[in-house]
Amino acid sequence: MRRFMAFMLIVFLLTSLIGEVSAVDDPQPLFRMEMTITVAPVKVENASTWMGTFKIYVVLKDPGYRAYFDYLAANNSTKAREEFKSFVKQLVYDNMRDNIEKRFEAVNMTSTIYLPSGGPVKVLDNWSAVVTFALANFLVSDGKVLRCPLSGSLDFVYKGHVFDYSWDKLTLILPKDYQIKNLAPVPDDLSDNVAVWKDGSFLPIIELYTPVYSYVLFLNSTRKEISLLYDPEEGYVQFNATFTGANATPSIINQLLASFRATMDVMSIDTRQENGSLVVIGVARPEVAYHETSSEKVWKAMVKLPGAFDSISVVGGTYVLAPDHTLIITVTEKKSNYRLYAYGIAVVLVIAAVILVKKKGAGKEPEIPEGSAGASPPETGEQELPEEPEGR
């Protein structure tokens, strides 16, 4: 026992001396650390905020302290785990909390740290632990961009000396439907809004576009085309809108669909990706005015578009663009009985002409051929004898 305690005293003295010699700009010497920060918008007590949830996985790597906690565990494992928990809280959690508080004070902001019910540290096997806490106001907005006020290098105070709060890996998980404006330094890996850095001692610069501004950027950087078809029999308008030139995140797609629903009486609507473009397909119920002439039926269908389009086409009709992005579609149809009416008039005229000709022919005397006047009836094979004169 005395030999072990003497050994531990020597270890701690050497560790302290090493710390004094190399305290500035050196990595913290005690733990291997991997940090994961998950960022998401949440509501806390009916107030909206951006929460950053920290999970810091640590493994004790200092051989002197490992020997010390192994010795404690051999005699009282519960006490050893409790002391290790306190050790991790003081060095890992308290140092991170102090960094966070100083950063918020520097920008004249306040924030709140939320801890699990069992405290920030959970002890695992092999002198490892996970430190968990959540931080409100992790991102703040200026209307266009969401920024993290914590960006910069991290400090780690150990035995009165300041080291770099060094970690082996930092993983930042951002909402998939938010567009990244800037991450600095450049991540070693970035995919689906998950960024990974290796071997550092900082919190990165994090900037995201707000959903509204992302939507504006999307509309300003795309070519917008729409084709419409009004069906008078069914009474609805089919539309097909194409947006080409920029990537559409889920948030942008949701806002785009909401804009169609807000301006048009949409019966059904959907989207698809096609050849690098976003296509919106839908059916809407228009306001319709109808009139007819002796030869035509005319429908005017009015729909309000969700914004300006670079190209508009109407199938089976014509259109005019009224103020406030209102489209008036005109569909004209020839009456199907108009030809029969024309044919009927033609037949009546023909019949009338025939009757008129016949009437003119009935008013004339029949003509007698020349040489036939006073002619005797034709002779036959028998003739009467002439009568004898009287007085014979």
Results as ranks from 00 to 15, higher is better:
residue 244 T to K: 14
residue 244 T to I: 00
residue 227 S to P: 01
residue 235 G to T: 03
residue 237 V to W: 03
residue 248 A to N: 00
residue 225 E to Q: 14
residue 237 V to R: 00
residue 237 V to I: 14
residue 250 P to E: 05
residue 250 P to G: 03
residue 229 L to F: 11
residue 222 T to R: 07
residue 252 I to D: 01
residue 228 L to A: 14
residue 247 N to T: 13
residue 223 R to D: 11
residue 222 T to C: 09
residue 243 F to T: 02
residue 230 Y to S: 12
residue 241 A to W: 04
residue 247 N to F: 14
residue 243 F to M: 05
residue 249 T to D: 02
residue 244 T to D: 08
residue 240 N to T: 02
residue 237 V to N: 05
residue 236 Y to K: 10
residue 223 R to L: 11
residue 244 T to S: 14
residue 233 E to A: 13
residue 230 Y to L: 04
residue 253 I to N: 00
residue 234 E to K: 15
residue 238 Q to N: 09
residue 238 Q to V: 12
residue 240 N to E: 10
residue 227 S to Y: 12
residue 236 Y to W: 09
residue 240 N to Q: 08
residue 240 N to S: 10
residue 239 F to M: 08
residue 247 N to M: 12
residue 237 V to M: 06
residue 229 L to N: 12
residue 252 I to R: 00
residue 248 A to H: 02
residue 241 A to K: 06
residue 249 T to R: 04
residue 244 T to E: 11
residue 233 E to N: 09
residue 240 N to W: 13
residue 245 G to T: 04
residue 245 G to P: 10
residue 253 I to H: 02
residue 240 N to Y: 14
residue 234 E to N: 12
residue 232 P to T: 02
residue 252 I to V: 15
residue 226 I to Y: 07
residue 234 E to G: 15
residue 222 T to H: 10
residue 248 A to W: 00
residue 226 I to M: 07
residue 253 I to W: 01
residue 244 T to F: 07
residue 243 F to Q: 03
residue 243 F to S: 01
residue 249 T to M: 05
residue 237 V to Y: 06
residue 253 I to L: 03
residue 245 G to C: 02
residue 234 E to R: 15
residue 232 P to E: 09
residue 225 E to C: 01
residue 239 F to V: 06
residue 229 L to D: 01
residue 246 A to S: 15
residue 253 I to D: 04
residue 248 A to K: 00
residue 225 E to G: 01
residue 246 A to T: 07
residue 238 Q to H: 08
residue 232 P to A: 11
residue 232 P to C: 04
residue 228 L to D: 07
residue 252 I to A: 02
residue 247 N to L: 14
residue 246 A to H: 10
residue 225 E to R: 14
residue 225 E to V: 04
residue 253 I to S: 01
residue 239 F to D: 11
residue 223 R to A: 13
residue 233 E to W: 06
residue 233 E to V: 06
residue 247 N to D: 07
residue 223 R to K: 13
residue 250 P to R: 09
residue 226 I to H: 10
residue 249 T to G: 01
residue 223 R to Q: 13
residue 224 K to C: 08
residue 227 S to Q: 12
residue 224 K to F: 08
residue 246 A to M: 10
residue 225 E to H: 07
residue 232 P to M: 04
residue 253 I to K: 08
residue 244 T to L: 06
residue 252 I to M: 01
residue 239 F to W: 09
residue 229 L to A: 14
residue 224 K to H: 13
